[in-house]
Design a protein around this nucleic acid. Structure first.
Lengths: 342, 342
DNA sequence: CTGAAAGCGCTTACAG
DNA sequence: CTGAAAGCGCTTACAG
């Protein structure tokens, strides 16, 4: 910048202004400065800029994993929404571990992000305190927190589980199971567990047992998880009529296992998932699922942050908001009234 | 930090040392400082640290999209490898557009990353120059560059295409097609195109025409892309015997389309993909593919950078290196000698 | 419309 | 083992 100002014959302040707010500078000086910038192929140092302006234009996004297209969609939506305002995402992966989330939050705070976006509503005590004290906007996404730290953008995983159970119940099924992951491991899919909890609550209300709700395998779930847990379920209850998998990924794995075992879906077994992944729609038969718009969660979060972080003079401080983006039941070809009861 | 040093009764320099290199400080002062840090829940400001040390510990990773589990795996592998050394990834998505790549590089350079990792070996002229001049290690990944900017970690997409064609040819097929994406759009899958080029070269060498090599639909490919392009291919050549899709995602989509049309795979049609995505293995029938270890590309890149960026005194400057991680043909259930020639 | 001064919170490079 | 000084490259807040 020093070189640029010398070459253009102006002060460093003027160079800074040309970069930050060109209209404040007269056209002739602006041109001189721009030419010098071009000539030296000068790239301003935002590390220095961040330090002196106390604004990094970094947004920390903490997600369980990026190897899940739903979370990748959310990240992409968030990045897309924030890009026009020149924000850069700082992405961290927790691998579904709360201690890892805490570690990431601590490390990220040292980078002085302007806001933190975190998937989930359950955090360690220390993580909660750090976020509370950080003095920056916090957005919890992908669920509806009972006690939000600050803002929230998501949907109720519990209600998703209830909707799934009500759908299967409405088809007349009584022997109903579910496929989720272990909760006695360090890696926990807490939102998947909420869906199972909602699912189970409906079973109980209908006077059914929850003994066919399987929790096995470590988070994150996989195609293989669906295949294996379906096997466990079938061993426990060969007469099972309908199954809800906490993720479409598991549902697809379970469907492929049905193909391999010669189980006809939906004639012998109704099967549904969650997430509306591309593969669920393309599968043969296409999988009944609960759609959530993961990319929209990211975009909504971005739009919210753009408002909250706007520091134009006429903006008043915005109160913490909670956005519920909802979900939809998408009935396709893998759920039907069971043969047995037709 | 000022507060910490006052509370501990030492200079700021000592606080800095406790954080950076605790062994340089006597145990008693170290304890005093640590207690003060704890008490004030002080989090060091790495923005300031980066400015004064001229090292950000940021690594820029530029990928086509994260909504592709292969690239997500690479990102995760890279993040994993760099984490122990406390590096943070700055991820950018090009959406398969070179102009967007250029824009991202320019924006990222202002963040003063310690290195740049970029998928692909083709860049705009300006992007090339910026990377050349940046004065930091550059790693081009996911292909084998003819004229590398600096380091490279990848495999030959051209050879992948050749291996695919040789496999199908070896099964006795003569009417052979391929499914790729358009090259007349802003979004181009250049590595997919290299695979098609290698594939085509083998067809020509075998005296076969390349008229069944379909390029349709915008990058990135999708399940739907596979279904649609297979439809185009079948219209053009109902007697096609074998098909290579540039991605398993397309291959799965094509397989599902075969299911819908009652085309038996591999009896009526041999089908293979690329990438060894989970879904290719879990599909029924399981899809023949070419495996690349995407996560390993990330990890190898991380390990390379750790060496290159090591600034311990006894380390000499490392020359630019090119790592070829190779690939494997994985023969599963979707390729066989065609019925017609049995 | 332009500029001189101070300072953001650290680390580097020295000195003792 | 510890500290005082200078400086990293910008922006803020002022003055003219």
């Amino acid at each position: 910048m020093h070189d640029v100002s010398r070459l253009a014959g102006v002060s460093k302040m003027t160079v800074s202004r040309v970069l930050a707010d060109p209209d404040l500078v007269s056209e002739s000086t602006r041109n001189k400065v721009m030419k010098a910038i071009e000539q030296l192929s000068y790239v301003p140092d935002r590390v220095a800029g961040s330090l002196s302006s106390r604004r990094t234009n970094f947004i920390t996004a903490i997600l369980p994993t990026l190897t899940n297209s739903n979370f990748a969609d959310t990240a992409q939506g968030l990045a897309e929404a924030m890009r026009p305002a020149d924000y850069q995402l700082l992405i961290g992966y927790t691998m579904y571990r709360l201690e890892e989330e805490e570690r990431i939050i601590r490390a990220m705070l040292a980078r002085r992000p302007d806001a933190i976006v975190v998937a989930g509503t359950t955090h360690t005590k220390a993580a909660n305190e750090m976020m509370l004290r950080a003095g920056i906007p916090i957005v919890e996404i992908w669920d509806t927190p009972e006690h939000p730290i600050d803002h929230a953008v998501g949907f109720s995983n519990y209600e998703v589980g209830r909707a799934a159970a009500l759908h299967l119940l409405g088809l007349g099924h009584r022997r109903i199971g579910a496929l989720g992951s272990r909760m006695d491991s360090d890696a926990k899919d807490l939102r998947g567990e909420s869906r199972l909890a909602g699912f189970t609550s409906v079973l109980r209300e209908a006077g059914l047992s929850d003994e066919l709700v399987i929790r096995a395998g470590e988070a994150p779930v996989s195609y293989d998880h669906g295949a294996v847990t379906l096997g466990i379920l079938l061993e426990r209850a060969p007469d099972v009529e309908a199954v809800f998998a906490v993720s479409d990924i598991s549902a697809v794995g379970a469907l492929m296992e049905c193909h391999r075992r010669g189980i006809k879906v939906p004639d012998d077994l109704s099967l549904m998932g969650f997430g509306d992944f591309d593969i669920a729609r393309q599968c043969v038969p296409a999988i009944t699922t609960i759609r959530i718009d993961a990319e929209r969660i990211g975009r909504k979060t971005g739009e919210l942050l753009l408002q909250v972080l706007d520091r134009s003079p006429d903006t008043e401080h915005l109160p913490a908001s909670a956005v519920n983006v909802g979900f939809d039941l998408v009935i396709r070809q893998t759920t039907a009234t069971s043969k047995k009861r037709r």
